[in-house]
Amino acid sequence: MALVQDCVIEDQEANKATFDMVKFKNVLFSNTSLTGIELTDVIFEKCDLSNIDFSGAIIHRTEFRDCKMMGMNLTDATLRNVVLNHCLADYANFRFSNMKQVIIQDSFLRKADFGYSKWLKVEFYQADIDQAQLSDIDLNGIDLSDCAFNGLGVNVENLRGCIITREQAYVFANLFGLIIKE
């Protein structure tokens, strides 16, 4: 039950560090690699996690609030009961991650890479995922209707059962070269 506040953590490298019941508030992580980190009951509030390496992380019951996460590396990460709220996570890398009960709300994930991830109960509310890579993700039952995007990287076979708006259907039609005549 620690509070880490108003500081800079830079040039740090650790493998398989564990944080349990810690709150990071207004912390800048610079040139930091925390591969295989395990986070349980952790809150990041107004932190800058841009370009941090969390590859292979195991993240449980963790919330990111008002955080800058540009280019954050979460490759091969496991996320359970995680919330991203009011975050800027453009270019974040979630490739090959396993996400269950993840909520992404009021956040920007433009050009983020989720390719080859496994999703179960991933929910989006007012999220901008323009140009995000969703290749080889089973989107059956995933509701993207509250997301903003002009294009996505997707596989046709993975779209079955995905929930979208009528306007978004036009975007997908254009992605597949269809011409819609009105």
Rank of each mutant, 00 (worst) to 15 (best):
L88V: 11
E63D: 13
D113C: 14
L178Q: 08
Q101M: 11
G141P: 02
D146S: 15
D128F: 01
G56L: 03
G71N: 06
I43N: 11
S30T: 10
K23V: 10
D136M: 07
C7I: 14
Y91G: 04
N31V: 07
R80M: 08
F149Q: 09
N98W: 06
R166T: 13
L79R: 05
Y170Q: 11
F114R: 14
V42E: 00
D136K: 13
Q126N: 11
A132C: 10
I103R: 15
F29Y: 14
H86C: 07
M69W: 00
N31D: 15
F64L: 02
I179R: 12
L120A: 09
L159W: 02
I103E: 15
I129G: 09
D11P: 03
V82S: 05
H86G: 04
F19A: 12
A169G: 06
L175W: 01
H86E: 09
A127R: 00
L109S: 08
D130Y: 00
C87N: 14
N73W: 04
T75K: 08
A173W: 02
C67E: 01
T78N: 08
F172R: 11
N98Q: 11
G115T: 12
V83W: 02
A92D: 05
S33M: 05
N174V: 09
V154A: 03
V102N: 08
R80P: 02
L159T: 13
T32L: 04
F114K: 13
D20C: 05
D66G: 09
H60L: 08
T75C: 04
I58K: 15
A57E: 12
L88K: 10
S55M: 00
D66I: 04
N93C: 03
F176Y: 13
K23W: 00
I9S: 06
H86D: 10
Q101D: 15
D130G: 13
Q5N: 11
H60W: 05
Q105E: 15
R110H: 02
V102K: 01
